[in-house]
């Protein structure tokens, strides 16, 4: 008798704990459900619908016509598509390396103590937070052939060129400007990530190295850099993903630089508005990105 009572009670506790857990699970699902429905119906479903559309000749009015893989064939045999791929790679590589290096350099400076440091730190975030649309015109003015400062310095003062011209007027030069513009806009991001890592490095390693007579380069190479390796690796992959898909930063500055997003935009929303081909293009761009990420994760991060 004396044994029975606690047994019953503990059974009841288990049952109660079990229903509590089910209740908890149900509550968790209730809370996440709106997010799941929204993301499912407005992100996942459209992507599947995009695959479906890429198999059709999409009409703006009336029914779509099934054409199988014709859109893909059209895209892949078009030399301007391959040119866009090349431009995208140049853009992504240039911007990623540029932002990471400049971010690293700026972080190494900002980690030191100097007067007005917090003001300076706030000021250099401005490019990152200001809306793209509000800064593109200032950059365009900078390269304006008539009034811009760039021509004033290179033509009037240094006599580097034979006549005034717009540096963003031709595709070859414009891609360089687009890269510099993107570096300017996003270096604060990599700087912030690197700075927060730098600040958490323990000082004792440096002190020991100093006693051993290490040079500042050696200190950077053997103490700082290994600590930063992971954060730099993640900056690179984030920047690759974002810059590969960049649209606004390029298109609003100049429509001369046809990276894939801009190329697709022109195909799908100007002229004949070939949205079927646009859908195929968007999907190809996505697959290229996934391919690159898998390669990067395996070969560079060696996961």
């Amino acid at each position: 008798m004396t044994v029975k009572v606690p047994a019953v009670r503990s059974n009841r506790v288990i049952v109660k704990a079990h229903t509590l857990r089910i209740e908890e699970e149900r509550f968790g699902w209730k809370l996440i459900l709106p997010s799941v429905i929204i993301i499912g119906s407005l992100i996942i479903y459209p992507i599947i619908y995009n695959m479906y559309l890429s198999l059709f000749d999409v009409k703006l009015q009336g029914a779509n016509i099934y054409i199988g893989l014709q859109n893909y064939k059209n895209v892949l045999t078009d030399p301007s598509f391959w040119h866009a791929v090349l431009t995208t790679f140049i853009y992504v590589i240039g911007t990623t390396i540029g932002t990471t290096l400049i971010g690293l350099g700026v972080a190494l400076v900002m980690v030191k103590n100097f007067p007005f440091r917090s003001l300076v730190r706030a000021l250099i975030l401005l490019p990152y937070i200001a809306p793209v649309i509000s800064v593109v015109f200032s950059w365009q003015f900078f390269f304006d052939p008539v009034n811009g400062l760039f021509m004033h310095v290179t033509y009037d003062m240094l006599h580097l060129f034979e006549k005034r011209f717009s540096l963003i007027g031709s595709p070859q030069n414009a891609v360089i400007v687009a890269i510099i513009f993107n570096i300017w806009r996003s270096f604060p991001f990599s700087y912030l990530m690197i700075l927060s890592r730098l600040q958490s490095i323990d000082n004792s390693g440096y002190e020991a190295a100093e006693i051993d007579g290490a040079s500042s380069w050696q200190k950077f190479r053997y103490i700082t850099f290994p600590e930063l390796y992971f954060v730099i690796g993640s900056i690179v992959i984030l920047r690759v993903i974002w810059n590969f898909n960049k649209f606004e930063d390029v298109y609003l500055l100049t429509d001369n630089v046809k990276v894939l997003s801009v190329y697709t935009y022109f195909k799908a929303f100007t002229g004949v508005m070939d949205q079927g081909q646009g859908a195929a293009l968007a999907l190809i761009q996505f697959l290229l990105l996934i391919g690159f990420i898998l390669f990067y994760v395996k070969k560079v991060l060696k996961w």
Binding site: I39, I43, F247, F286
Partner: peptide, 21 residues
């Protein structure tokens, strides 16, 4: 993980299907 995965989608991939819808 799904939330993280959504990071990889560029706007252009959603633009055409959403416009069609």
């Amino acid at each position: 993980r799904g939330v993280l995965f959504v990071y990889m989608f560029g706007g252009i991939l959603l633009l055409i299907p959403l416009y069609q819808v």
